[in-house]
């Protein structure tokens, strides 16, 4: 197989991994492993916003091929990471022709896993669980669930409309805060704190923080810093959105 084709397979797997929220070392490791499976030596450098790979055949080190892939949007899809992981491990045991490998990768890329309704319900139950866990009553939980489902809907709509993730988080936490404030004003027996904490739980940037730490551990300082900063900005935007809603409440009451 040609070097360019192998690198195409490797870089597409790397792209899927990176856009699904994988750590940097896993992306580099997967690219190296796929290239090795086809007896190609390669050197890869991955940052959260781009993949750089250059590779050459073992018996012909003079002609190397380099590819660069820019990564623009990142989501969270742990299922894809698992699929690529098994794909690259299978490839190591038994190599497959170019077309077949590309077909598998394309099918992984578009595979939806849970339907939208299920994810919406999951968002609701998450909010319910945390509202009750933080000493709310069951009615608080139900309110938090409703708010959380609503902001999940807004979040998905805004994701399609291509707003920046910071603005998305800001607006969603602002909406969540506003609805909870209104609800608590008109219905006396609601506790506002558990409702707000429960309903914004789905916005928390858990993945960015954990990945930041794990990247630092593997020596990928560049991406570690950018992820930690990303998490900090997200947290700030959530805090500002919520704070704005609470401030309005203070003025209003």
């Amino acid at each position: 197989m040609e070097v360019r084709e192998v690198l195409n397979i490797a870089i597409l797997s790397g792209e899927i991994l990176l856009t699904s929220g994988s750590e940097i070392y896993r992306v580099e490791d997967t690219i190296d492993r796929i290239c090795w499976a086809y007896d190609i030596k390669c050197e890869s450098f991955v940052t959260p916003s781009g993949i750089f790979v250059s590779g050459w055949a073992l018996n012909n080190a003079n002609e190397s091929v380099s590819l660069i892939k820019r990564i623009r949007n990142r989501t969270i899809n742990l299922h894809n990471i698992e699929m690529i992981n098994t794909f690259s491990r299978n490839l190591q045991n038994k190599t497959m022709p170019y077309d077949e490998a590309m077909k598998i990768l394309k099918s992984i890329e578009i595979a939806p896993y849970f339907s939208f309704i299920k994810r919406l319900l999951a968002a609701g139950v998450t909010a319910f669980a945390y509202a009750v866990l933080f000493k709310g009553t069951f009615i608080d939980g139900a309110f938090a669930a409703a708010i959380s489902m609503f902001i999940y809907l807004v979040l998905e709509k805004m994701k399609k409309a291509d707003f920046s993730q910071y603005f998305r988080n800001f607006l969603c936490s602002f909406i969540a805060g506003l609805i909870s404030v209104c609800a608590a004003k008109f219905i006396d027996f609601l506790n506002i704190n558990p409702i707000i904490v429960g309903s914004i739980m789905i916005l928390v940037p858990g993945l960015a923080i954990t990945n930041g730490i794990r990247d630092a551990l593997h020596g990928d300082i560049l991406s570690s810093q950018s992820r930690v900063v990303e998490a900090l900005i997200i947290v700030t935007s959530i805090g500002v959105g919520m704070g704005l809603a609470l401030l309005l409440m203070k003025i209003w009451m």
Binding site: I76, N77, L78, H79, N80, E82, Y113, F114, K118, R119, A122, A123, V125, T126, F128, A129, Y130, V132, L133, M201, I202, G206, L207
Partner: peptide, 20 residues
Amino acid sequence: KEFVLAFLGSYCPAILFNIE
């Protein structure tokens, strides 16, 4: 009760993150 709630609180985000 909290054990069950914490279970739900990890199970449901897991669905949001598309876990097998």
